[in-house]
Amino acid sequence: NRMHLVCPMNTSPHVDPQKSGHEVWEEFSHSFTPAVREVVEFAKKIPGFRDLSQHDQVSLLKAGTFEVLVVRFASLFDVKDRTVTFLGGKKYSIDTLRAMGAGDLLNSMFDFSEKLMNLGLSEEEMSLFTAVVLVSADRSGIENVNSVEALQETLIRALRSLITKNHPNESAIFTKLLLKLPDLRSLNNMHSEQLLAFKVH
């Protein structure tokens, strides 16, 4: 019944069997907190984000942090080597993680990361795409949908303009990027289900 945490936001998937569930959770939380803070700092730098209401800033971050982290840490999933690098720096093979209990979410994360990395986006393009991921007017609990929608449209226009300028002969890249948004939603839902299972256990 040895437990493992197969999320790469941990330093390692191995869990000390002497620790209580609460202690394990605290340690996990301690691992991902700096990454979450970085997402908040990133959001603050999106032009117009700070002009949204405090409620909507929090709602967007609550709903979108996981998706932003998936984009930012896509490079942790090495499709060629079939490994995942955890925050502690150690790599684990897909087979090892499967033996530890990882399931469909791991496969889906690999698929997503591979497709995203294959687009060969620059840092600036990736950053703007990440802003588009975060500022989505259809997240639950948004008070001022019009304001979020206006910012979302501005960001999407900026992304299209940047991609068109940088990849004049690859017009499909922008479409492919927008199609990543529902993929991220799907990963977010799968991840929430895994968290529920973890909390229940």
Binding site: S29, T33, V36, R37, V40, E41, K44, R50, Q54, Q57, V58, L61, K62, A63, T65, F66, H191, S192, E193, L195, L196, K199
Partner: peptide, 27 residues
């Protein structure tokens, strides 16, 4: 599991990280 962010303690981390900036705005 309607609010995974709250269950994770994410909301608390987010609010604290945003707070300095939001207080700045209120000033």
């Amino acid at each position: 599991f309607s609010d995974p962010a709250s269950n994770l303690g994410l909301e608390d981390i987010i609010r604290k990280a945003l707070m300095g900036n939001l207080e700045e705005r209120q000033d």
